[in-house]
Write a protein that binds this DNA or RNA. Sequence first.
DNA 1: GAAAATAATTGACCGCGGTCAATATTGCTG
DNA 2: CAGCAATATTGACCGCGGTCAATTATTTTC
Lengths: 174, 174
Amino acid sequence: MESARQIVTDAGFEALRTQDVVRRAQVAKGTFFSHFKDKDALMDVLIGERLNVLLDDMEAIPRFDTVDDLVAHSTPLLQFLSRDRFVFDVFLRMSGALAIEDIGDIATAIYRHHRILAGQLKDSPFRTDITTDLQAEGVQSFCINAVALSFCALHTDQDVQSRLMVYLNAWLCP
Amino acid sequence: MESARQIVTDAGFEALRTQDVVRRAQVAKGTFFSHFKDKDALMDVLIGERLNVLLDDMEAIPRFDTVDDLVAHSTPLLQFLSRDRFVFDVFLRMSGALAIEDIGDIATAIYRHHRILAGQLKDSPFRTDITTDLQAEGVQSFCINAVALSFCALHTDQDVQSRLMVYLNAWLCP
DNA sequence: GAAAATAATTGACCGCGGTCAATATTGCTG
DNA sequence: CAGCAATATTGACCGCGGTCAATTATTTTC
């Protein structure tokens, strides 16, 4: 883990090679794969811990007074995901899991994000015709969509935040 | 292309190997990669043509009278995407492109889907406080989200359609 | 403390995507 | 048709993720 973190710091997520990790950690390749199912599993942990740091900050917020407020407090997460296409791809790939036993850190972080959002939305002055759980699911869906479009050459007219703002105004204050 | 289609028909998208494609097509590996940037580019065409068949059907619909109607007519697309995890991963990966010149068939199909939806929503009896363009973007976002959750072991309580129904009722008829 | 059972580690090896210098084919021109 | 340029094709080769039988280390048992 320490070797992997160092490589990511030095050269970025995309440049990480299992060979380099094991060389740095002074172990054999097989040892790596006895600890991690595959390379994605390592990425899952690496990205998961980054997400959890950002979620720690987010958890401290009691509620959102406005949509602007929500978007502002979501910015660190959005920026982390939209900074690196490779990271976003791993994020999408690991966001769900076919079997309970391989639910990883990213998927867990997404549930945590959902719980945090739902809690905060409970005390926020938005629409009341749907549950805060559903509101939170929608917010997450729109966050992903906004980040995804930020990577698309045909959608360079808006940045992630302003796109999310439009979505969430329509979603939370119809 | 013909070789690739045959392999997919016989063994599925995930089992496709460039080696097998070139062997079947009686050409060398290098020839394949002079026609396609990488394997994903081939997948993009293969999946893109499937999507366009489904969109052809969808285009024939004039409008949606209810959310149920919209969901019902979206079912073929949803089922295609949620049938095969590998296909959905490629779909997500190819859904945007960093540069205009590598916008592929899947990304193009997504724009087509958006245009079709926006056109149909124009004549549909849903909310009028936001543009049909924005409505369509939201519908797409929720479709992706519903499919993504269908692959997640923690969300087996609902099927894709009923999940989408909940989303779209909240989105289009607030 | 020796022997047996269990667990951890190793690195040669494989499969597959992708590259590229060499070679063959085609098209063009006088 | 010869000669040249442009284009298409080839397959040996590379990098990297992942496997697994063999080996070494650790724990358990009597």
